[in-house]
């Protein structure tokens, strides 16, 4: 089963929920954590996995054979991403703009374009105790995150619980992380920003047709509008974590809530039970 933790707004506590849920469940089942926030991966800072595998990820970009090129310019006209252009009698490529669609190799009438691999980042895999932990790290300056996110998700094992930590926002990297999930947890905070961005995130998971619920972090540091919104929309709120300077200090130091405050263990196990129940309910509803 794949459960993704997303948020809309950044800094609401996605990584807190992902890591604590993983730690709370590790004694009951095999759990795999995939950090798909490849721009700013943070899960490894809290779980400290021992890395035993590093895999470079690349996408195919054009490689032009100047001896075959007749400067017709069809590649540049075709490319939707401005990644290749004919200027005078030279073909210039911009690999950082390329999405790797392969279109230029198809439209080139003289067979002058083949493809080479262009590195965009690295996927790290390892273990933290019983947990399998993997994360992607995009190379600084590379704009295209989704192919690296896909590469992290390819490590998904079927016979365990996979927890995915998604990037903030609602655009293409988030969709890449959230799609194909069985359930999505949306983490928010009770502020106007939290509410606004939660609404956007709800729009996204609804569009993808994934069952979801909300977790409210720092629930005592704001107002009740988020809860009211969830009530009106019939969105279940599965967990509330109050603001506490002690919890903030735990987080700041790179430790997990349930490591310092084991009384929170049960809350995360209950969170999992609620998720599992809802996934089964959803599966039942869609198969009927």
């Amino acid at each position: 089963m794949i459960v993704t933790v997303a948020s809309g707004k950044g800094g609401t506590g996605k990584t807190t929920i992902t890591t604590n849920l993983a730690l709370a469940l590790q004694d009951f089942m095999s759990v795999q954590v995939l950090d798909c926030d490849v721009e700013e991966p943070n899960v490894h800072l809290f779980l400290n996995p021992k890395i035993n595998n590093e895999k470079e990820v690349s996408i195919p970009v054009p490689l032009v054979d100047e001896t075959k090129c007749n400067n017709c310019g069809k590649c540049g006209d075709f490319c939707a991403f401005n990644a290749i252009a004919v200027v005078g009698d030279k073909v210039i490529t911009f690999p950082e703009m390329c999405h790797g669609c392969g279109g230029c190799t198809i439209v080139c009438p003289s067979g002058a374009i083949t493809e080479k691999e262009n590195r965009i980042g690295v996927v790290f895999s390892g273990n933290a105790g019983k947990l399998d932990v993997s994360y992607g790290k995009i190379d600084v300056g590379v704009p295209l995150a989704p192919p690296l996110i896909e590469a992290v998700k390819e490590l998904n094992e079927n016979d365990c619980l996979t927890l995915i930590d998604a990037p903030p926002g609602t655009s293409c990297p988030v969709v890449a992380a959230v799609k194909d999930s069985d359930f999505c947890l949306l983490v928010t905070e009770p502020t106007p920003f939290g509410l606004n961005d939660l609404k956007l995130a709800v729009g996204m998971v609804r569009e993808l047709g994934i069952p979801f619920a909300v977790v409210i972090n720092r629930s005592t540091l704001g107002d009740t509008r988020v809860e009211r919104y969830c009530q009106e929309e019939g969105i279940p709120v599965l967990l509330k974590i109050p603001f506490d300077k002690k919890f903030a200090a735990t987080y700041a130091s790179g430790r997990c809530l349930i490591q310092d405050y084991p009384e929170w263990n049960e809350a995360f196990i209950n969170l999992w039970k609620e998720i599992e129940r809802r996934v089964q309910q959803h599966a039942g509803a869609t198969s009927n």
Binding site: D37, E39, L144
Partner: peptide
Amino acid sequence: GPPGIGCPVI
């Protein structure tokens, strides 16, 4: 600005 270091930040 947006969070992250990807396309919209660049």
